[in-house]
Design a protein around this nucleic acid. Sequence first.
RNA 1: GGGCGGAUAGCUCAGUUGGCUAGAGCACUCGCCUUACAAGCGAGGGGUCCUCGGUUCGAGUCCGAGUCUGCCCACCA
Length: 1133
Amino acid sequence: MSESSNESGSRELPKQYRPAEFEPGILSRWLASGAFHADPAAVKSGRKRGYSVLIPPPNVTAALHLGHALNNTLQDVLVRAKRMQGYETLWMPGTDHAGIATQTVVDKRLRAEGKPALVEHKQMEAAGENGRERFVELVQAFKDEYEARITDQLLKMGCSCDFDRQRFTMDEICARAVREAFFRLFRDGLIYRGKRLVNWDPVTQTALADDEVENEEVESSFWYMKYPVVDAAGEPTGEHVTVATTRPETFFGDTGVAVNPNDPDRARFAGQRVKLPFVGRVIPIVADDYVVAPDPESSDSKAKYASGFLKVTPAHDPNDWDLGQRHSLDIVNVMAPDASISEQHGWEDVGDAGWAVGLSREDARAEVEKRFRDAGLLADKKPYSHSVGHSYRSHAIVEPYLSDQWYVRVTDDRLRGSALRSMSPDQRTTDGFRASSADRTSEEPGDGALRFVPSRYAKSFETWHENLRDWCISRQLWWGHRIPVWTISNKILVEDGHLDTLERKFKGAFHCITSEGERDEQIATICAQPNEELEAFLESIGAAQDPDVLDTWFSSALWPLSTMGWPNHAIQAPDARVLLPEAPGSLRSIYVKRVNTWSEFVGKADEFSGDLIDRLIFLREKDADKLVYQLFSAKDLSLPLYTPDEIQECEDLVCAVGLKQHGEVETAKFGSMHLDDWLLSHGFVSTADLLGAFNPTSVLSTARDIITLWVSRMVMFNRYFLSDAASNDRGGPAGDALGPIPFRDVYIHALLQDGDGRKMSKSLGNGVDPLDIIDSHGCDAMRFTLCKMTTQTQDVRLPVEHDAATGKNTSPKFDEGRNFCNTLWNAARFTLSILDRAGPEDAGGQPVSPGELPLLDRWMLSRLTQSARSIEGSLDRYDYAPYADSMYDLLWRDFCDWYLEASKPTIDSSPAQRAVLRNAMETILRLLHPVCPFITEAIAEGLADRRTAAVAGLTLGEPEKAGLLCTAAWPSCDESLVDEDAEARFDRVRGLVEAVRQVRAQHQVKPKQRLTLHTDAPTLALVDEAAEATRFLAGLEAVTTDAPAADAVKFTFAGGDHFLSGLAAGVDKDAERARLTDLVSKLESDISKIEGRLSNPGYTEKAPEHLVNQTRQQLAEKQEERDRTRQALEGLG
RNA sequence: GGGCGGAUAGCUCAGUUGGCUAGAGCACUCGCCUUACAAGCGAGGGGUCCUCGGUUCGAGUCCGAGUCUGCCCACCA
C-alpha cells in the first residue's frame, strides 16, 4: 500500500517481489560465472562424481510450450540440486531437426505466404536448378529462427544447461556421428535394403509419413467377388470362393486367397487353388487366422461384412503384405506412381485383363465391378462406410505403394537383445532376453541396470521390444541426414578399375556390396564413412547418392553419443595444464589435432588446412583474449615447439588450441564463427572427454509417448556403438559383450492437460505459453507450481483461463507459486531488517550451540533438519510434489507463521536468535534453490553481507563461484539438530495459542485487546518456556494461576480447564452457549464412535495393545471433557 | 483389440507398509490494513473417499466384479 517503502533506506527491498527486476540480471551473472559449464576432467580425475542429463531435444518446429517448461523444470531441479550436492553436473542442451514435421511446417508456411514451396522447388530440382539445396536453405533459416527462440526460452526458464555445448541434431558434429553410425551398422550387416509399402500420394507423387495422413470417413461399398477353384491341372472344379473387399481394383495384383483354418465351413479350401478371373493367374488358398470368420449378427463390422475369404494383394495393402510374407506369396504391383493401372511396374501376366491397363484407380474400380457382374462373378455389393487415409497436402486418397527402403535390423540380438537385457530384473515381467549377468561396475552399468520411474513404464518398453519389427529408416524428404550410400553400375566400378582405386586410397572408409551380394545384378552399393575426399571420388566416377534422408529418430537415437563427441571423443591427451602451461585457468576447453608435418598442416594456400592455420594465426594475433594455441611434437607433449626450425623439422606435429570463451565470435576476416563447432568439424578433437566422464548419463527425463521411438533406440545404439567390438573392423559384438546403457534411470513425467482433461494444443486454443507466465507471475512461480503439480500419476490437469485483457491463456494455479514466492520475499525482507538492526558485532562469534537456545529456536532447527531429510528423499525418488509441499510447509507454516512471529518479542535483544534466524533463512534458500533459482539467488545476495555467528550442526559452505547461490553447497543438517522433545513441547505451545485464538475469534475480541490467562501450574510452566512468544501470539497481558474473575470464559486445553479474562465487551452469553452446545454434541458423537470400537471384542483382542490403550485413554478424556463442558453450559444459565 | 492411469470438499489435488476426528491450495463465511507480507493475518463451514461384493478387530488404502473417464500402442479386408 505504502508507496514510500523505499524511502527509509537504500537497502530496503520493494514490498512485492517483482521478478522482472531480478531475473535478467541474475541470469547474466550465472552465465558469466561459468557456473553451468561442466568440467569432464573433474570427473575423470576422480575429484568429483559426475551427474549428467541430456535434454530431450525439442523440435525446431515451434517455440517451447508448457509441457517443455515442465520437463525442463524437473530436469533443472535435479541438476541444480546435484550441483549443490557436490557433483560435477552436465546438462546438455540441444534441438532436434524433426525432419518430417519441420519440412511440413516450412512447406505450409511458404505456401501460406504465396512463395515457392516444396512442389515448386521439386520442379526446380528436376530442371537442374538446385531446388533441393535452395529448399533446404529455407528450412535451415527457419530452424535458425526457432533454435534461437528455444534457447532464449530455456534461458528465461532458468535452465542451468551447459549452453557452451549446445548441439543440434543436424549440425556437423552430430552429422559425423550419424555417418559413422550408419557406416558401422552397414558394415556389420545391421542395415539392409528392403521393400516396403509406404503412404504414397499419387498427386504430388511423394511418400507421406503416418502423421501426414489424415483419416476421413468415406461412404463406399463392400464388393463380393467370386474366384473359381481349380484342380491340380488348372481346370475349374465348379466351386467358387467369394472374397470380400473394399478395393476390387487391386485384384489384378492378388497372389493368394486366405481363409481362417478354424472356419468350420471353409477351412477345407486351404491348400486348393483358384484362378484369378480375366488375369488367369493361378494362386493358392492359404490358411491364416488373421482372417475373420463371417458373422452377420456381429457388432464387429469386420465379421458382419466378411465372406470368410480374403483376397491377398501384397503390393497394395499393408496387411496383405504381412500375410504374403508369412506364406511366401508372390508380389505383383499393378500400379504406376500416378496410381493408374499399369503393366510397366511389375505386372507381367496381364492375360485377358488388358482392358484395365491405363485406367485410373477410380475408373478401374467401376470397370472391374462391371466386368465381374457381366461375367456373373459379382456375388454382392453392400454399402459400407469406413475411414480412408488422405494426403494432408493434396487430399488425394493415399495409396499403399511398394518401394525400396532402408532398414535397421533391430530384431538382431545385438540390438533388441541388448535393450531387453538392459532392464532391471525386478522390472521384467517375462523371461525372454533376461539379463545374462548381474550389474557390471557402477561406473559402467550394462545388463540389468536400466530402471524406469515410475516402474509401470518398464512394461511398455518390454512389450514394444518383444513385438519389434525391423526399423525402416529411410524417408522421402529433403530435410534430414542424407543416406550415405552411393550406387553405381557394377560394370563401371569393377571394369574401369575404380574399385581398385577405392581399395587403395580409402581402405576401411567404405563398405561395398557388389553384385554377388545384392539381388540387383547391375548395381554396386557403397556406404562411405564421413570423408570428403572419398565422397568427391564417388561423385567423380558417377556414383549416385541415395536421394532419401534418414528417419529423424536415427540421429535422435545417437543423442547420448553425438552430444558427447563420439566417435572422436577418445583421445589420449595430457592434462590441459601440460598442453598449454601459459594459459590461465580461464581456459574453457582445449582441442587438439594431430598431423604429420608442418607443410601438410599448413598446406597450400588454396587448400583446406591453409585456411585452417590462417584462421588460427589470425585469431591468435587479433583476438588473443579468445584463443591460445601451441604446437608440439607428438613424441613429447610436455615440450612445446617454438622456433620455426623446430616446427619445420618435426614430422609428427600436434596442435593444441585452447578457447577462453564459447559461442559465436566475430572476426573481421571470416565473419561470425562458432569456434568449438568449427574446430570439431575440422578434425580437431576435444581433450575434454565428455563421453568418458558423463556417459552413461544419470537420468533421462521424458514423456511416455517416446519410450519406444526414442528411449529404446538410444539404449540399443549406445550399447552397440560403445561396445569394444563395434569400435574395430571385425564387426559388432554378440551376446553380452555390449557397451554401457546411455542412462541409469528413465523418469517418465506426467503429461499436462487442461482443466477438462484435454491435451493442450494449438488447435484447441488451450495452450499456455511459458513466457507469458514468466511475464505475469515470474519464472520461479511457474516452476514452483509445475513441481507442486507433478505427482506420480500419468496426467496432471491445469485449469486454463483466457485473459481477455491480454488475449493470452493463463491459469490460476500459477497464483499459488507467485504467492509462495511473495511470502518468501517478505519473510526475507523481514529477516534482513532484523539483521540490519543488529550491529556488525553479530558476525564472527562462536557458533551457537543448539542446546543453549530457547525452545522456539530448537524447534525451528529440528524442523529444518527434518524437512531437509524429507526433501532429499523426495529428490532421490523423483518425487517433485512432496518436495514442493515440504518447502511450502517449511517456509510458510513453520518459518513464517510460527518462527518469525514467535521470535518478534525477543530477537532484537538476542544475537543467538539472530544467528538461528539467518542460518534458517539461508538453509531455506538453499533447499528451495533448485525449484526457485532466481528469487533465492536474489535474496542470498542480500543475505551475504549480513553475517551472524554460525549454528553448530548446521553447515552452509561458501559458494564456489562468484558468490552465487547456485554454486553453494547443499545445506548439511546434523542429526543432532533433530529434537523430538522440542517439537513436542512447541506443538503444545501452539495448541495453547490456537485454543486462546479460538476463544478470541468466537467472542469477537479485538486484536489489540490483551487478555489474562488463568491456568494451572503445568501449563504455566509450559508457557514459561516460550513466555514472550506465547503472550505475543495469543494476545495475553498476563498468565497466572490465580482464580479467574467472574466474567472469565472457560476453555479446554490438553484435558484441563482454563480461563480467559479481560474480554473488553464481556462474555457474549449466547455465543458462548452456542459454542459449548456444539462442543458437547461433537464430543458425544466422538464418544459413541470410540465406545463402539471398544465394545467390539475383536478389536480389543486383536489390535495392537498400545492402540487399544490409546483408544481407552482417549475415551476417558473425551468423557471428562464432555462432563466439564456440560457443567460450564449449566453455569451459563 | 492390447497396455497403462484416474474417479477423495464447489474446483485442482495430497493421503507413505490398512490404525486416533480423511488433509492442502483456490473458492466460500466471519473478524482484521496487528509496523515482513491484503499476492496477507486469525477463526470457521464444506466430504455416501465412483458402485457392489470380499478379506480384516478395523478399508480412502488390500482383493474381485462393474460403471464412468483419460492416455499410449496396434488396427480398421
